[in-house]
Amino acid sequence: MEGFLHFNLQRANAFVLFLLFCTLILWFIRAARTRQDLFIRKIAGLNAIDEAVGRATELGRKVLYVPGISSIDENQTIASLAVLSHVARMTARYNTELDVPNKDPLTFASARETVKEAYIQEGRPDLYNDSIVHYVTYDQFAYTASVAGIMMRERPATNFLIGSFAAESLLLAETGQASGAIQIAGTAEIAQLPFFVCACDYTLIGEELYAAGAYLSRDPAMLGSIKGQDWTKALVGLAIIVGTLAATTGLFDLARLFRAR
């Protein structure tokens, strides 16, 4: 009880918005479990995954999966692991070589579990070995040099660059482009998006990356959360329009309601 007396009233607006967001998401998750007709628009980059893995299988070359450079406390990494799970299931199904070099040790541990489980789920634990997911280094550019080396020496047919990236994004994407690989990238790092768009065949932009796990799994609960997120975005858009009009006409300052400390 003592704790509730110290509720931070300055953040009451954030609390209301938080509750609204959670309610919308949970309501749509519940709705999605009963309805099967949820429409989620097509995401070209995610649809291309099957084709990209298929190409590697046909050419008899490996699939390279780079899960970004951040740790597991970064949402983009978690989203990337969801895509990795799907890719690993496909490489297990088609007996295609997979290579997952890692920069962050915690991401490395999670990626290994993800890939191992995917191979088990596909009924091909015999194809799994620990060298598929390996650790390289904690240093950003030494990692970049190592991955660029794999791209040029081993010539993977398909490169996935999905997760949180920084300055190495263009170094990796350009090297992959020069090696002739088909490249699917995805990040929510705004500064890196132009580089991926220039040098890769497909790019998942921002929220598309976060939606990837739900999109690929087609799990109704997960798709429902995307729907709830879209409705929240619509409300944010509405608030922006109303706020802009109100501020322009000098009626009231809507932005004040959204300021949290």
Binding site: F21, I25, N75, A188, E207, Y210, G213, S225, Q229
Partner: peptide, 16 residues
Amino acid sequence: IMIGAALGAASLSLRV
């Protein structure tokens, strides 16, 4: 992009 990505990240966090 930031607003979309932030909502996407929040939605993913909730799922996690």
